[in-house]
Amino acid sequence: MRPLRREFALRAPDSGMLVGQLGIEDAELTARLYAGLEAAEKALQDNATDAADPRVAALTGYLAAAGGKRLRPLLVLLGAEFGEPWRAGVIEAAVVTELVHISSLYHDDVMDAATTRHGVPSVNVRWGDRSSVFGGDWLLARAAQLSATLGPEPVRLNAQAAGHLVTGQLRELVGPGPDEDPIEHYFQVLAGKTAALFTMSLSIGAYQSGADMAAIRALEQYGHELGTGFQIADDLLDLVAPCGQTGKEQGKDLLAGVASLPILLARADDSPGGAELRELLLAGPSADTAAHQRALELFGTSPALHEAKAMMHASLDRARDALSELEYQPAFQALDALCRYVAVRTA
């Protein structure tokens, strides 16, 4: 059995954690993942609340304390399995990815005028838009500082992911050009906003553990496709899942005017059956509660949901294809199970 880093304190698996939902058969891998996530969680809380002013620390640590799936730190740990996962810096790399992710949530909720996140009032509701934006900036800076302790390549990966994330947000904000296909534009936005951080998580974990370049490239491709499928799943859940399941208000994208994949597909549906929903969507975001509820009802039977789900499954199939380039080991099973986990979320 490969040794665990000495500071890891093993605990009984928590059935509510993502690791427990993957059905990993290898006990040693399961122990390493639980131990790594526990260490990463402690380091995350420490880093997110490290501001000298306690009022700033309360703001920057708010969403970290609210919880989350911690999928990106898990991806770092799984990427590290293709090298030597006990190497120094792997846990810090996991924290970097989650800090970048959480920083993006602060900005997202301002852009979308969200009211809840992880089942609690959003940061912009608690502190206002300006404080929320600067809180996200602080977390992004903290991620950069932490990555600088790991060496030039982690700094590059972090800067690259942050650049892709901001570019994706800006492209979403300005919308497609006059001659640009809205669906193609959506996937370019997705590549920056979501898939880039999945790719970074796997590659920084693999790099920090000393994995070879062939494994890193395969993991990057897997991460891109998994991130694509994950975002489409989120788009679907926004329209069909109640607030109690997601911790966010149902139809948040619809209310904010976000052009998610199902919304774009429904707008393009020129069949007679799709006319009412298309008309509601083309009218733009509405404060009319009845119109909003009617749009959600129509989405329940819209072929746009089935088409989006088919695209999600195609991305997950491509993610599995990328795994075929990796040497088989227990982490391979966990990565395959993550594809299944994403698909099951929308079942």
Rank of each mutant, 00 (worst) to 15 (best):
Q333S: 15
G168C: 07
D129I: 00
A40V: 10
L335R: 01
P13N: 09
R11P: 07
A241L: 02
P176E: 06
W127S: 00
S147G: 03
G177R: 13
L74C: 02
S286L: 08
E325P: 05
E327T: 13
W86P: 06
V133M: 06
V344K: 15
L197Q: 03
L236S: 04
E249R: 14
G16I: 01
L298Y: 05
E84R: 10
G89P: 08
P3W: 09
F8V: 11
R320C: 13
L239R: 00
E25P: 05
R72M: 04
A304V: 04
L261H: 04
S271W: 05
K309S: 11
A52F: 13
R345P: 01
L298G: 07
D270L: 15
D53T: 12
E172T: 05
R278C: 07
T199M: 15
D129Y: 06
Q245F: 10
A27N: 08
R345C: 03
E225S: 13
A80T: 06
A48C: 10
R6H: 12
F198I: 10
A51N: 03
H224A: 13
L77Y: 03
V174G: 08
E25T: 13
D112P: 08
D53Y: 09
D129R: 12
D235C: 05
E172Y: 00
R2C: 10
K42M: 08
T30I: 04
H306S: 13
G251Q: 06
P54A: 12
M200N: 05
M1D: 15
V19S: 01
L74Q: 01
Y62G: 02
A266M: 01
F230N: 02
R32D: 06
L139M: 10
E327C: 11
A211P: 04
A337R: 15
M1S: 14
D14L: 14
L282A: 14
E28G: 10
G227S: 07
D109K: 00
A141M: 13
Y62F: 13
T116V: 12
A256F: 00
D212S: 12
G300V: 04
A206N: 01
L298H: 03
H313P: 04
G128S: 05
V95K: 11
V123S: 07
W86R: 13
A161S: 10
G119H: 06
Y34I: 14
A162V: 14
L236R: 06
H101Y: 08
M200F: 11
A275K: 06
Q329L: 09
W138F: 09
A196W: 12
P154N: 11
M17Q: 12
A114L: 04
M312E: 10
F82A: 08
A290E: 15
D129H: 14
R217Q: 15
L4N: 02
D253A: 05
A334G: 08
S103D: 09
H107K: 10
G247H: 02
T194I: 01
K309V: 02
Q250G: 05
D179C: 07
E307M: 09
D269F: 08
N47L: 10
A94W: 03
R32G: 07
A57F: 09
T115G: 11
V120E: 02
L280F: 08
H313L: 15
E325H: 15
V56M: 13
R318Q: 14
R87Y: 08
